[in-house]
Amino acid sequence: MLRNRLPLLEFPPPRPGVNAFATLAACEASARATLISVYPVLMFRALGSAAAVSEIYVLIGCSALACALGVPLLARHVPRRWLYTLGILILIAGSVIGGFFPARFVPLAVAANSIGLVIVAVCFNAYVMDYVERASMGRNESRRLLFSGIPWSVGPFLGVLLMDIHPQIPFLISIAACLVMLAFFWHLRLGNGKAITKARRPPANPLRYVPRFFRQPTLLAGWFYATLRSVGWSIYIIYLPIFAVKSGLSDQIGGLALSISNGFLFLTPLMLGYLQKTGVRTALVTGFAGSGALFVVATLVSDYPWPAIAILLSGTLFLILLDICGGLPFLLTVKPSERTEMAAVYSTFRDVASVGSPVFVRLVLAFVPVQGVFAATGVLLLGCALIARRTHPGLGLRRH
């Protein structure tokens, strides 16, 4: 006798694409955003001075740089899916150390957080290049920005707010976001990326392209702009909360300011329109000059902390403009045949900024208090605006 059989229902994983990677990015943003304003406050409480915080961040930056250089070598022996998983587990370990261990272990938690982020970022970018078509890269970036905008806008203030209610809550939120990210990653079944044919020759060592990179003025300028922009953001994120606490304000102020700054991300369509009308050179000069001038003015009124913080907050609007246009000199002028190798050299701007920022701050703090750091940073940004005036005026403008 034949039995009626119900067909088995299959639930295939979602096709890896723009929305899937934007969701992964949103999970990562949720894990990072709740702690990004918590760690500077905890570091300052544990170490007692801004100078000591700078010294620790130098060591952390060096460890992250070494990890970034070592990830490609590690990827030759560890499958990418397990390497990505390892990065998430290191992020979770950092949150456990920061939230459940004594305060003296906070620097170790920050180091684990930085190393985990480096591993996750390298693997994430590799997956994106495998599964997202080149024609969809722009849409992928805009969707990633949209999905991550809310966590970055809410998370920094929420983190310091919840820290005052219970110090472990921000870390529990970060751990939960990491677990969701890990579960969704394995649900996507990305594996080790798409299979590719064996290369006819071994991959070129990016170090061989360093001299050629720095002999090309436009590529060097793009790297320099990206580095200075990252320095500006790093100093704002780390030292604004310290300035607020030393000025007698609540330790929640830094998180609130960072949340508002990240809320400016939703203005990027307007900034993109400005960039398309005026060109890259004008946008670069405007971004560096505006942020630099406001950082200097904030130092001049630092005896009044509320106006100073408001002015610094306004300066980040110009830093976001630099986020949009700072990398375009590189992207628009690099030779197609050298994109991979030159991109490896260009990407070092993040690691150089993560090491250079605390070194720069430590030198400044030897002569002036913490508010002087913003003036020194403003002078650097203003100097970069003068250099940006030498950018080709037609760069980024549509040709008719």
Rank of each mutant, 00 (worst) to 15 (best):
L158A: 15
F185W: 05
R208E: 08
W186A: 02
P241M: 01
M181R: 11
H166D: 14
N262E: 08
Y209L: 04
R200C: 01
G232Q: 08
R208G: 01
A183Y: 05
L188H: 08
G222P: 09
N192Y: 04
G255N: 07
L258Q: 09
H187Y: 12
L182H: 10
A177E: 04
N205L: 14
V154Y: 03
I235T: 05
R201C: 03
V245Q: 13
S174H: 09
A226V: 02
R215S: 13
G232I: 03
L256V: 11
R201F: 10
N262T: 02
F171G: 04
R229I: 11
V154Q: 01
I235Y: 12
G155Y: 03
L188P: 00
I237G: 07
V231I: 15
Y225A: 11
R215V: 00
G263I: 10
G191E: 13
I253Y: 10
N205M: 02
L256K: 00
I175K: 06
L161D: 10
A177D: 06
T227I: 10
N192V: 00
R212E: 15
I196N: 00
L162Y: 03
G193H: 09
R200D: 12
A221M: 13
A183C: 05
V154H: 07
Y236Q: 01
A221I: 10
G248E: 06
P241F: 03
S174C: 02
S259M: 12
R208I: 04
P211M: 11
K194S: 12
A204L: 12
F157W: 15
T197P: 03
L162E: 08
I235E: 12
D251Y: 08
Q216G: 06
